[in-house]
């Protein structure tokens, strides 16, 4: 199935969200998200804290089930996949988590090799070679491979998380706040690595962030989420003349404007 909403470049849609709703109790987090990501495209979703960015990403990954609407990957409805079908689908995905989410019980190289040894059933020696080459690709030497994740600095953890996300050479990579908690220089290093890795793999990328410097660097296209909806989407070059007051307020970081910060939850 090809998608009628296929983006400007005319490429087929890799990921498509149609009218996705998700509520927790009485709190509606997603109110009909529509988003199409073309194959090979890098989309960054921006938005304030608590606007539903993470929930949207988890709905695509199947970590949360949408209350309504559907998620399509490669034209196939994946909204209700579970069990081994879901596991098989996840082989197309790589994800860099906000806190890197490295497994503390395993040394760094086994973290990077995890998808290779567990899902792809590669032999340990072979998986280790690949893991070390992926670590090299993110600028870490082989000696780092033997360390435990607890011994790494924040920037190094993000790099290892990135190496793990790209180790199985997925065709879709997700980045959850890739630069949060890093100093600006290290943030830029991670941005460069993300751009390089995504380009080398030819992967489709979806990132969520509120760091505009990061968004401008990583994105082909930017979408802004507010109130559980995508309120604007367009090429990164047009973000400064979007004509949308919400987007303007957000990218310029102004307290005054149509977006009123929710001080209290709910």
């Amino acid at each position: 199935m090809t998608d009628p909403q296929a983006t400007a470049a005319g490429r087929p849609a890799k990921i498509e969200l149609r009218d996705v709703h998700k509520a927790f109790g009485s709190k509606h987090v997603l109110n009909g998200v529509d988003l199409t990501i073309a194959e090979g495209e890098s989309v960054v979703v921006i938005g304030g804290s608590g606007t539903g960015k993470s929930v949207m990403m988890k709905c695509i990954l199947g970590l949360l089930k949408p209350d309504a609407g559907s998620v399509h990957v490669d034209g196939r409805d994946t909204t209700h996949l579970s069990g081994s079908e879901r596991d098989r689908l996840m082989r197309h995905f790589g994800m860099l988590f906000q806190g890197a989410a490295l497994f503390d019980s395993l040394p760094v190289w086994q973290n990077v090799a995890f998808g290779l040894t567990q899902a792809k059933r590669l032999a340990r020696a072979e998986a280790k070679d690949i893991a070390l080459s992926k670590l090299a690709a993110v600028g870490l030497g082989p000696e780092v491979g033997e360390l435990s994740p607890a011994e790494l600095s924040g920037g190094m953890r993000k790099r290892v998380g990135l190496a793990r996300a790209i180790a199985t050479e997925p065709d879709i990579i997700f980045f959850d706040e890739p630069t949060t908690g890093l100093d600006p220089i290290m943030g830029d290093v991670i941005n460069d690595l993300i751009v390089k890795c995504v380009r080398e793999l030819g992967a489709t990328a979806l990132s969520i962030t509120h760091d505009m410097a990061s968004a401008r660097k990583i994105a082909d296209r930017i979408a802004m989420i507010y109130g559980g909806r995508i309120i604007w989407a367009g090429p990164v070059s047009e973000i400064d003349r979007s004509g949308n007051d919400y987007v303007d307020q957000f990218i310029n970081g102004r307290a005054e404007g149509p977006i009123q910060m929710q001080i209290r939850e709910g």
């Binding site: 199947g62 996840m90 988590f97 806190g99 989410a101 490295l102 497994f103 567990q118 997700f174």
Partner: peptide
Amino acid sequence: GTMRVTEQIDALNTLSTN
């Protein structure tokens, strides 16, 4: 519990591991 709150359980899912 620590694996849950540090998203390591979600990470297992994304690495095709139940």
